[in-house]
């Protein structure tokens, strides 16, 4: 567990080192990058600890599963 967390922090740090110098001129890009990176880091730390994350396919299923079932019934 500790190794995974250390690995994630190293990878994230590496991403910052690669990306930050080219973004210094563009403030909006810089802030978007920092926010997106923080979200990604939080998600990866959460997923390392096996906390169930919401699955986007379930959201799609809520809307499209009834339609799909009726389509399938029509064609069989």
């Amino acid at each position: 567990m500790m190794w995974f967390i250390a690995g994630i922090i190293i990878i994230v740090g590496f991403c910052f080192i690669i990306e930050i110098p080219s973004l210094m001129k563009f403030k909006k890009d810089l802030w978007t990058f920092v926010v997106a990176m923080l979200v990604a880091t939080a998600l990866s730390l959460v997923s390392v600890r096996h906390v169930p994350l919401p699955n986007p396919l379930d959201w799609a299923a809520v809307i499209f599963e009834p339609i799909g079932e009726s389509m399938k019934r029509t064609f069989e």
């Binding site: 990878i11 994230v12 991403c15 690669i18 990306e19 973004l23 563009f26 909006k28 890009d29 978007t32 990058f33 997106a36 990176m37 979200v39 990604a40 880091t41 998600l43 990866s44 997923s47 169930p52 994350l53 699955n55 986007p56």
Partner: peptide, 21 residues
């Protein structure tokens, strides 16, 4: 944004996480 490359690294991390679930 000024350049789409800004988002590639964070999006890649999210892509890896979500491909697992």
């Amino acid at each position: 944004l000024n350049n789409y490359r800004t988002l590639t690294l964070p999006c890649a991390i999210m892509m890896i996480i979500f491909s697992q679930i």
